[in-house]
């Protein structure tokens, strides 16, 4: 049997698959609302989510969208934040274990930490800890990990308490699976160790892990982390590793204002091994 004879059969078989695939890829009715919010266009998003709630008042995604829209309004007032918190609390209480319920718990913690006109750090820390403990591995728990790290580290506490907090974050990192959560928790800890304790011994492996996994995507951040890793390696006597990071810096940023000095530093170090270079 030739291909032209088979063609109607192939087309007939493919049609239902194509139709179902097309239906699967059709944007949800709330797509436009999320798109508006992605472009910081809260006023249009508000209309989309309000219309969706009129059609289906129980729809959880539309209510999440409506709550978050209140937090993005240009003329945000304490009343908007309180309304958003109420909507999120209702979503969480209705079902604390589905995606929307866990998301609501995360954004309630974000309100405590950031959106509220009277932020409550202690409450935010407790909420993040509870979220991570209740839903380890969930995407919202992964988002919460670096937030918890920065709240714990940039706090004025006695040295032994600070060390306990560092230990808590170090224990948290291996539980994380989302690449951005691993990267940002490591970078938050590494940067705090350098800024607040000048501790290159513990900071260096954190920077090196982020660079070696190629997870630092923002060019301005990559620019800094490459130099941080190289300088820490140099201080720790890891001259070959330092050379690798400096060489990678020059590959990615050949015309940076630091490049001339980095070329000078690199000339004093051993020739870098290609394996040490980060892969942005």
């Amino acid at each position: 049997m030739t291909v032209p004879r088979l063609l109607p059969v192939i087309v007939a078989c493919a049609l239902p698959w194509t139709a179902s695939r097309g239906a699967g890829e059709a944007p949800s009715p709330l797509h436009a609302g999320w798109q508006d919010l992605a472009l910081v266009n809260a006023s249009d998003a508000q209309v989309v989510f309000a219309t969706a709630q009129e059609t289906n008042p129980a729809g959880r995604e539309a209510r999440l969208g409506a709550a978050l829209t209140l937090l993005q309004l240009r003329s945000r007032t304490p009343g908007h934040v309180a309304d958003a918190a109420e909507l999120l609390e209702n979503l969480r209480q209705e079902n604390p274990n589905d995606d929307i319920g866990i998301g609501a718990a995360y954004y309630l913690a974000r309100i405590q930490q950031l959106h509220s006109f009277n932020p409550d750090r202690t409450a935010a820390v407790a909420s993040y800890r509870a979220l991570i403990a209740a839903h380890p591995g969930h995407p919202y728990a992964q988002l919460a990990a670096p937030k918890l790290a920065l709240l714990l580290l940039y706090d004025d506490v006695p040295p032994d308490e600070w060390e306990k907090r560092v230990a808590e974050i170090e224990a948290l990192i291996p539980q994380l699976t989302a690449p951005e959560a691993v990267r940002d928790t490591r970078l938050t800890l590494g940067t705090a160790l350098i800024r607040l304790r000048h501790d290159h011994v513990r900071a260096y492996p954190l920077f090196a892990a982020c660079l070696d996994s190629g997870s630092v995507t923002r060019m301005p951040r990559l620019n800094t982390v490459l130099v941080q890793a190289a300088e820490s390696a140099e201080r720790l006597g890891k001259r070959s590793e330092a050379a690798g990071y400096y060489a990678e810096f020059l590959r990615v940023f050949p015309n940076d204002s630091k490049s001339d000095e980095i070329r000078r530093r690199l000339a004093t170090l051993p020739v870098p091994k290609p394996a040490n270079a980060a892969r942005p």
Partner: peptide, 29 residues
Amino acid sequence: DITIEATRQLLREGTPSATLRRKYQGLVE
């Protein structure tokens, strides 16, 4: 915060573009 959540929701639909994925990673960072 809101841009990140919106991007996350858009990523769940259909076949997201590589640019959208990069945007999400970059926004979080």
